[in-house]
Design a protein around this nucleic acid. Structure first.
Lengths: 173, 173
DNA sequence: GCAGAATAGTTGATAATGCATCTGTTGTAA
DNA sequence: TTACAACAGATGCATTATCAACTATTCTGC
C-alpha cells in the first residue's frame, strides 16, 4: 500500500492523466474540425469563450483561455484578420479593449459547437451520468485548489517583498 | 433540461475543464519546481516517463509524452546537452535509438518526484478517495475512447485511400 | 533475395509562444 | 492636484513547436 515517495507511477498520476486526455481530444478536434476552417486550438478557445461568456476584455479572455496576454493579443489580431472577431475600445476605459464575435464568427462557432459536443460525447462514452458528475466536479475543485494555492503564494511573496522593502537600504540590492 | 445544441456552457464542457486544470498545474509546477533547474514542462514529461517506465525508444517517448517526434528529437538533444539523459543506438535495430536517464538525471528526477506529488496532493485536496478513484478511472477511459476513435478513423481513411488508389489513373491527381 | 512499403529519426523552413519591456491610461494616497 | 503605483495592451526578441521533406534502416510479399 505504501508507495515509495521517489517513485512515480504515471498511470496513476493526475497531472499526467489530465494532460494526456486534454492533448488527445484537442489534437483530434483540431485536425478534424478546426483545421478545415483555418483555425488553431488556441483560436477555438478564444471564440468558444466569446460564444459562451459573451464579449470580453482581452485580459479576461487571457485568463479564461489560460493564454498569455501577449499571445492573446496576437491571437485576436489574427482572428480580426480572418474576420471572426472585432476589437473596439471599451466605453468605460481608454486603456481597455472589448473583443466580440463578428456575425461571421458567430456563424462559425454555431457550426463548430455541435461538433465539439460530439467529441466530448465520444470522450465520455461508457461513463455513467453519476461518474461524469463526479469527474467534472473534481476537475472544477482541482482547478480551484490550484487557484487558491497560487493566490496564497503570490500574497506570501508580496509580503516578503514588502518586508525586504522596509529593510532595504540604498546601495543594498 | 434539454440544452440548446449550438450553445456551449464551458463550465460544464469536459475538454475545457481538463485543459484548465492541466494548464494551471503545469504552469505552477513549471515555474516553481522546474525553472530553478532549467527544465521546461516538456523536458519534465520526458524524464518523468523515463523514470516511471524506464528507457525508451524516441518514438515511444513521443507517444508516451504526447509530443511530436521531431519536437522530441530536439528535446532529447537538449537534455543530452544538459547531461540528464543519454541516447544510444538500439541493440536490436540500427535505425532505433534508446534514451535513458543518466546518473545525474536520475538524481534530479528523484528530487522532483516528491515535489510533483505535492502538487498532485494540492490539486486533489478535499476530494475523497472514492471520488479520486472515479476521477482517474474516467480520465483513463476518456483517453482510451479517443484513442480507439482515432484508430477507427485512421483505418477508415486508409480504406478510402486504398479504394481511390485502385481507381487512380496516371495524370489524375 | 529483392523491390517497394513502412518505420525511426533528423533537419530546414516557418510559425507560434513567452518573457521583458514599452506606451498610454486609470486608480490612489498624500 | 499631483505624484506614483497599478493596469491593459502591444511589440521586440529569443526560444520552441510544427509540418514537410529527407536519410537510413527494416519489414513484407512475391
Amino acid at each position: 500500500m505504501a508507495k515509495h515517495p521517489s517513485k512515480l507511477d504515471l498511470g496513476d498520476y493526475l497531472p499526467y492523466l489530465v494532460n494526456r486526455v486534454g492533448t488527445i481530444i484537442a489534437d483530434q478536434f483540431g485536425v478534424e474540425a478546426l483545421a478545415p476552417h483555418g483555425l488553431s486550438i488556441a483560436m477555438w478557445r478564444v471564440i468558444a469563450v466569446l460564444a459562451s461568456a459573451g464579449q470580453q476584455r482581452q485580459i479576461d479572455l487571457a485568463e479564461l483561455t489560460s493564454t498569455d496576454a501577449s499571445t492573446l493579443s496576437r491571437l485576436v489580431s489574427r482572428l480580426i484578420r480572418m474576420g471572426q472577431v472585432t476589437r473596439t475600445r471599451s466605453a468605460n476605459s481608454n486603456r481597455e479593449v472589448v473583443v466580440k464575435l463578428s456575425a461571421k464568427g458567430q456563424t462559425l462557432v454555431a457550426r463548430l459547437i455541435p461538433i465539439a459536443r460530439d467529441y466530448e460525447a465520444a470522450a465520455i462514452a461508457g461513463i455513467s451520468a453519476q461518474e461524469l458528475a463526479v469527474l467534472k466536479r473534481c476537475l472544477r475543485r482541482a482547478y480551484e485548489n490550484m487557484k487558491s494555492k497560487n493566490v496564497a503564494r503570490v500574497e506570501q511573496r508580496e509580503t516578503r517583498e514588502g518586508q525586504s522593502r522596509l529593510n532595504a537600504a540604498p546601495g543594498f540590492r
